[in-house]
């Protein structure tokens, strides 16, 4: 028996899905595919969002901002492209010169790429409980993982505190007119945040949480490893001793890894939730695998991933098979919706 988990697929499967998503978005400049990915990833986030949790950042709203900003910034700073929309006087500092349609579109594509990446991270963050993220971290880095989880838990608290401070300052007639007017908003937020951090530190100490001091042996290994790495770099770049340098750096890396392993073993932890792989993981991995093959394998449709609006704007190519393969990233939605039919 394992405690009931709201995660339908294994954290490692989610991590592989995220890796595939980021790689796919990074390799795509075709705005049609990027739009498809953006909407698909937004759908994944929405289906994974637990009841009662607000969306921290709406990917579509973010996309509208990022695409608009990208278009404006690129239009104002890039002078390439054949289709001139308007020509600003060349004497205007920084923005003077022709504004081209191609530069606008290129900026919009940059915004779309950024938005799709944010949507991918957003879907991953929505789906993965913090405890599942911590379970992925090796034991040696456990204290660091807990610190990260505390930081993540603090985000909604800080947002709420910021709202409280803004309202409280409005109630005493505060209005932001110049940059210095931001202080009444910033200071209570900062001080309140520090006070909460201290309270949490005290509560965690009361619950027995404290990082274990590393043993002398671990310290020695860590220092030795770092010294060996440094010596290896010196050998490589100062004296050009490639073989000796590689060997020294290898020993250094080995010592550091060993120290981390020892450190992890000295701080035993148990895990409440054990995540098991099953048919749902298989479906998500197959979907991600299909997408990965489509964007990496050398086949004719892959060429449609690339797109540039320069020198003259043209419609991007749309390859239905590739678009279908990209939909492999939507398998978490299929798993969530079809969960009741799966064993």
């Amino acid at each position: 028996m394992t405690p009931r988990s709201l995660l339908l697929v294994h954290p490692v499967t989610w991590t592989i899905w995220l890796g595939t998503t980021l790689l796919t978005v990074s390799l795509t400049r075709n705005p049609l595919y990027l739009l498809l990915l953006l909407f698909g990833l937004t759908l994944v986030a929405e289906t994974e969002r637990p009841t009662g949790r607000a969306t921290p950042l709406d990917p579509i709203f973010f996309a509208v901002i990022a695409v608009s900003f990208g278009a404006l910034f690129n239009a104002a700073t890039i002078r390439y492209g054949d289709t001139v929309l308007v020509a600003l006087p060349a004497s205007w500092w920084l923005i003077g010169g022709p504004i081209t349609l191609e530069a606008v579109v290129f900026g919009m594509i940059n915004g779309l790429v950024l938005s799709a990446l944010v949507a991918g991270f957003g879907a991953f963050g929505t789906a993965m409980p913090i405890s599942a993220l911590i379970s992925l971290v090796p034991r040696a880095f456990y204290p660091l993982a807990v610190v990260m989880s505390v930081a993540v838990t603090y985000v909604p608290l800080t947002i709420r505190l910021a709202g409280q401070v803004r309202e409280a300052q409005q109630l005493r007639g505060h209005q932001v007119r110049v940059w210095r007017d931001g202080l009444p908003l910033l200071l209570p937020l900062l001080i309140g945040g520090l006070e909460r951090a201290l309270q949490l530190a005290e509560a965690m100490a009361a619950r027995g949480f404290a990082a274990d001091p590393p043993s002398n042996q671990v310290r020695m290994m860590l220092v030795g490893g770092l010294a060996a790495l440094f010596a290896g770099l010196l050998l490589q770049f100062a004296w050009g001793q490639v073989v000796a340098a590689s060997l020294t750096m290898l020993i250094g890396t080995g010592l550091i890894l060993w120290a981390l392993r020892e450190s992890g073993q000295q701080a035993p932890r148990t895990r409440y939730r054990l995540y098991r792989r099953g048919i749902r993981d298989m479906i998500v991995l197959l979907g991600a695998g299909l997408t990965l093959i489509a964007v990496l394998a050398p086949w004719p449709g892959r060429a449609s991933l690339a797109y540039t609006p320069y020198p003259m704007l043209q419609l991007p190519i749309f390859e239905p098979l590739l678009a279908l393969a990209l939909m492999g990233l939507l398998m978490p939605v299929a798993v969530r919706l079809g969960d009741r039919y799966l064993p």
Binding site: I130, T153, R196, A203, G208, R269, Y272, R273
Partner: peptide, 25 residues
């Protein structure tokens, strides 16, 4: 209560200190 939570779900929060204390599963 808010100032003492580390995780985001009821069950995980209760189990957190036990995991840290390496209580057998």
């Amino acid at each position: 209560p808010e100032a003492q939570f580390v995780l985001e779900r009821v069950e995980d929060e209760i189990a957190f200190a036990l995991e840290h204390a390496a209580v057998p599963r």
